[in-house]
Design a binder for these strands. Structure first.
Lengths: 233, 233
DNA sequence: CAAGATTAAACTGTCGACAATCGACGATTA
DNA sequence: TAATCGTCGATTGTCGACAGTTTAATCTTG
């Protein structure tokens, strides 16, 4: 009965959901660096290239706009969002805010089953660390945090997190590899889960602050370096 | 060097923004109770009635979907979101979460000017209380809280607040009058501002909790009564 | 008479077309 | 020479149309 936590990313059975497919294609193009930040997304061009009309392309663009990957300028079209430090800071600021909240909620609603799901996901993180597949690592990391939001049981909070995560994926995709030691990514989740298990709000928020704050600093550092090095024409 | 565009606040040439106009019309229709919760929004019907084509109606609907007033069901169309208690609780839960955060941020960034803006808005609230215009009262209340988010200076946070507020407006519109004593609405803002002026995070969050929590309980109570009394066919 | 099958109407998803608007480029003028 | 104006191509906003799907209505059939 429950949506069964669709992994937003890759497999993506192509139903007759044309808009969704186009959105995914565009998203990939953005993350992979074609369609560089700041570039214009011409509806007719995309449509011609994909062999469809402008209508579904337009809707897909609106979808990506909602997720923050594109920005719309009336009568001028859609543009790939630039990689601004300010924007990244705003994303992480908001993420920190809602993840603190979600973690406290999750602790309050924690059951033995949900606790095990979190623990298993940490195991997955450890196993994934050996694969040397950064994209997969980011994906599994995302799943862990998404689990927290699912347990918190506020659909709106979950949707918001998904949107933020989508945008972060773009950022991380543009930046490239995130962690040097993929095992560290797994290890750092354990004290977080431990804190949640205690149920103490202050301890939980402190750990979330540390965990997310760490990612914030890392991504910020890389983004700054990236922005300084790369020049968009 | 500088073109020196006239700083005169030109009223921003009346929208040729068809989509925005349609969105506003639909929003009014929803709040006023035509288009009752759960009812279907037929694109062609709206389009015919307004003398436009389906394209802009569709986009307007997507806009209202993003704001949470409508829900989209693939290949079935748009429906006016039902007034579920769960949904209201989720909205207020999220609002409480981000308003705590925004208030602490605002306190950190508070300047004499921004402090005065908040104070003046409280005065406006007092003056509005005499007018016996509930809609206006809600609007000015919204303005005060929006100011806090503006001062917090996180565009994403602000946009999120605007979306939540839009949905709350619908809820409140459906429920009807909110406060019996409109002056109370103004008074309760003063200790909140005072707390922000102190700059103590714990004191601020405590006051936000009280302030928003109060509204949450009020709205929840009325919504429950409303949902119990009214039956949608 | 009720439940399932069948058909018709209504509606969404998608398409191609056209006019209004934007941005770039070059002409004009001081 | 620099700034402004007009022109032209490119692109978005909007439109009406059509096909496939969903919903409602009607017709079976046990």
């Amino acid at each position: 009965m429950r949506p069964m936590s669709l992994p937003v990313g890759l497999p993506a059975i192509a139903d007759s959901d044309l808009v969704g497919q186009i959105a995914r294609i565009l998203m990939q193009a953005i993350v992979q660096g074609r369609l560089p930040p700041g570039s214009k997304v011409v509806e007719a061009g995309i449509a011609r290239e994909l062999g469809v009309s402008r209508a579904p392309v337009r809707e897909a663009a609106r979808l990506l706009e909602k997720q923050g990957l594109l920005v719309a300028s009336p009568r001028r079209g859609f543009f790939v969002r630039k990689l601004e430090i300010r924007n990244i800071d705003e994303i992480y600021d908001l993420r920190l805010c809602i993840e603190r909240h979600a973690s406290v909620l999750a602790a309050r609603r924690l059951t033995p089953e949900s606790r095990d799901m979190l623990r298993r996901q940490i195991d997955v993180l450890h196993r994934t660390a050996d694969l040397d597949d950064p994209a997969r690592q980011v994906e599994e990391d995302y799943r862990f945090h998404r689990l927290i939001f699912e347990i918190a049981d506020n659909r709106r909070l979950l949707r918001l997190f998904d949107d933020l995560a989508a945008e972060l994926r773009m950022v991380i995709g543009l930046i490239g590899r995130l962690y040097d030691d993929p095992h560290e990514i797994a290890r750092t989740h354990e004290p977080l889960l431990a804190a949640i298990e205690t149920g103490h709000p202050e301890r939980i928020t402190a750990h979330v602050d540390y965990h997310i704050g760490h990612a914030w600093r890392e991504v910020g550092k890389l983004a700054r370096a990236c922005a300084a090095g790369r020049h968009y024409r």
